[in-house]
Deep mutational scan, measured.
Amino acid sequence: QVALSRTQVCGILREELFQGDAFHQSDTHIFIIMGASGDLAKKKIYPTIWWLFRDGLLPENTFIVGYARSRLTVADIRKQSEPFFKATPEEKLKLEDFFARNSYVAGQYDDAASYQRLNSHMNALHLGSQANRLFYLALPPTVYEAVTKNIHESCMSQIGWNRIIVEKPFGRDLQSSDRLSNHISSLFREDQIYRIDHYLGKEMVQNLMVLRFANRIFGPIWNRDNIACVILTFKEPFGTEGRGGYFDEFGIIRDVMQNHLLQMLCLVAMEKPASTNSDDVRDEKVKVLKCISEVQANNVVLGQYVGNPDGEGEATKGYLDDPTVPRGSTTATFAAVVLYVENERWDGVPFILRCGKALNERKAEVRLQFHDVAGDIFHQQCKRNELVIRVQPNEAVYTKMMTKKPGMFFNPEESELDLTYGNRYKNVKLPDAYERLILDVFCGSQMHFVRSDELREAWRIFTPLLHQIELEKPKPIPYIYGSRGPTEADELMKRVGFQYEGTYKWVNPHKL
């Protein structure tokens, strides 16, 4: 086992960053958080920038500027975001240094004079007029057009580079997404736009490419001749908990499936790229999406959770019991969808996408189930092999396979070949997804960000279904809070070829 401390991990990262040409360590950078008073800024962006600063992973002359409508001070920003920093008493001095680099400007999102004030403020910072500028839009999409237009007109660096990070949702359907994309691309070049999907920053999602293309053993079996089906799962054990009003506007397909799960599907299904260059990788992902037809209604199961009468606390409440959810809402909190990649490698292999709230566990994984062994000599005792990439929690890679049961006879039983990170790298604290992705933006690497043509294809696949749901308002199937979801989803999976045995229990190697 390799035991690495946080300091050692960050030392390795620093070495990698400083050796590259793309990370300008000594240049002045300004990180501007648009929507600095909001939840995302408070819980994710400010803490992430602090962790990067604490670990010495930001360029040395980096300033952080918050911008929002609320009249706040840096002290206010500190008060609301610091509880999420997880700072230790030993880091007190470092924390003071961090907040000394912070400033805040209040202004409207659609007022040109406010942006001119913001620009004057940035120019007044040390070497601010020639600094590289990175704008993070932690804002609702309704203000994107006004904000990007004003940034472009008043706040661009004339000497350094300018980059803009856009948070999902990128529209509600193909038409609104196209409108937003066309607007942003009329102001910024594609190499300046970073559409963030934080799932692409997760260690195991990034590991998929290495697993596939750096190991000879997987190449020959990664196709329709050997793989019976692919299941991509995202499960949350909690409901909307008072935030249903926002969720109800989008629903589970827009929230998770059309982005996170579809991105994971691309990494499983794509061909080997010409290189690890950002556009070479994204070219292959677009090719996969172009091979997927629009979702067919007979390959869809929609569910909505109801309270568990035997549960406790939140578990007793259904989705419609959330006071922020519109009365009688038919918005799905669970969806199972089957897609097919219609190309030579994957023809006929079902890709089953499942996601839901208020389920029995927290889990995100990719599961490849292989065909049955031909010419069975073990009297149907063999179960199908599976390769599982567990994204969260407890990152893991393992192969479910058959071995001989101890004893006199040739009785096979299920076991696993474990390729888990935790076994080799004991207690290594890896940077989280937002840390990686923000560092990628500083480096100018777009590999783990969504390109406009990729986004367009993703919406093309799901828009007809979303429009049909909005028009017909089908009643989702009720499922109990804390269950596996509607049984109809299991029946759909069985119908397209997935075999669920229920006889195997994964042993978490992190707890051995």
Rank of each mutant, 00 (worst) to 15 (best):
Q258Y: 13
H260T: 11
L261T: 03
L261F: 05
L262Q: 03
M264E: 04
L265H: 00
L267Q: 09
V268R: 02
V268H: 00
M270D: 03
E271W: 01
A274Q: 04
A274P: 07
S275I: 04
N277I: 10
N277P: 03
N277C: 06
N277V: 08
N277K: 05
D280N: 05
D280H: 07
V281D: 01
D283L: 06
D283E: 12
D283Q: 06
E284S: 13
V286C: 12
K287H: 11
V288F: 05
V288T: 06
K290C: 05
K290S: 12
C291R: 12
I292L: 08
I292Q: 02
V295T: 05
V295L: 08
N299T: 08
N299M: 13
V300F: 10
V301R: 04
V301E: 04
L302G: 00
L302R: 05
Q304L: 00
Q304R: 04
P309A: 10
G311K: 11
E312R: 13
E312T: 06
E314Q: 10
A315K: 08
T316H: 04
K317R: 11
G318K: 03
L320F: 07
D321N: 13
T324G: 14
V325M: 06
V325W: 03
P326M: 12
R327H: 10
G328S: 12
T330K: 09
T331M: 06
T331F: 00
T331Y: 00
A332N: 06
F334N: 00
A335L: 00
A335Y: 01
A336V: 08
V337K: 00
L339G: 03
L339P: 01
Y340N: 12
V341K: 01
E342A: 07
N343P: 02
N343E: 02
N343C: 06
E344S: 06
E344A: 12
R345C: 08
W346M: 01
W346K: 01
G348M: 02
P350R: 00
P350K: 00
F351V: 02
I352N: 01
I352R: 02
L353V: 08
R354S: 12
C355F: 06
C355D: 02
K357D: 02
A358Y: 00
V366W: 03
R367L: 13
R367G: 05
Q369I: 12
Q369P: 00
Q369G: 02
F370N: 02
H371W: 04
H371K: 15
V373E: 15
V373Q: 14
V373A: 15
G375H: 09
D376A: 11
I377Q: 03
I377N: 03
F378N: 02
H379G: 12
H379N: 13
Q380V: 09
Q380G: 12
Q381G: 06
Q381T: 04
C382T: 06
C382D: 04
K383I: 12
K383S: 15
K383M: 13
R384M: 09
R384S: 14
R384D: 02
N385P: 09
N385L: 05
E386R: 01
L387C: 08
I389W: 15
I389E: 00
R390P: 12
V391D: 14
P393G: 13
Y398E: 13
M401A: 09
M401S: 05
M401D: 04
M402S: 06
K404S: 15
K404W: 14
K405Y: 10
K405N: 15
K405P: 15
F409I: 12
N411W: 10
N411A: 07
P412W: 14
E413A: 13
E414H: 14
E414K: 11
E416V: 15
T420A: 14
T420I: 07
G422H: 10
G422L: 07
Y425S: 14
V428F: 13
V428Y: 12
K429C: 15
K429F: 14
L430F: 09
A433D: 15
E435F: 04
L437A: 15
I438C: 04
L439E: 04
D440I: 02
D440S: 07
V441A: 10
V441R: 00
F442D: 00
C443F: 05
C443D: 15
G444F: 01
S445V: 10
Q446V: 04
M447C: 04
M447Q: 12
H448I: 12
F449N: 03
F449G: 01
V450L: 15
R451H: 13
D453Q: 03
D453Y: 00
E454D: 03
L455A: 04
L455N: 04
E457F: 03
E457M: 04
W459H: 12
W459C: 11
P464S: 07
L466S: 07
L466P: 01
H467Y: 11
H467L: 10
E470F: 06
E470A: 09
E472L: 09
K475A: 08
K475I: 14
P476R: 01
P476S: 07
P476C: 06
P476H: 02
I477V: 13
I477H: 09
S483D: 10
S483K: 05
P486I: 12
E488H: 06
E488I: 08
D490R: 12
D490M: 10
D490P: 03
E491F: 04
G497H: 13
Q499L: 07
E501D: 10
T503Y: 11
T503Q: 12
Y504L: 15
K505Y: 03
K505A: 15
W506N: 13
W506S: 05
V507E: 14
V507G: 11
N508M: 14
N508G: 09
P509K: 10
H510D: 12
H510E: 15
H510I: 11
K511R: 09
